[in-house]
Amino acid sequence: MAEVKAELVGNLWKIVTEVGQQVEEDDTLMILESMKMEIPITSPVSGTVKEITVKEGDVVQEGQTVAIVE
């Protein structure tokens, strides 16, 4: 099980995955809008998305867990 964390503070712009989806390592799960950039949040491991802990429009903090991949 791996916790997916935001690497910097930002506005959660888009979630491009859903619970139950199979993902590969480095697949984009969500896109953060921060510092004038669309910053992909990627899966650290291959597996199944077990939980998404944020919703679009949320402000996420650096190091905050945004999803869990199993």
Binding site: L8, S34, M35, K36, M37, E38, I39
Partner: peptide, 10 residues
């Protein structure tokens, strides 16, 4: 490196 943190400096 725009791939990481959008290339912003920390």
């Amino acid at each position: 490196q725009p791939m990481v943190k959008g290339g912003a400096l920390d």
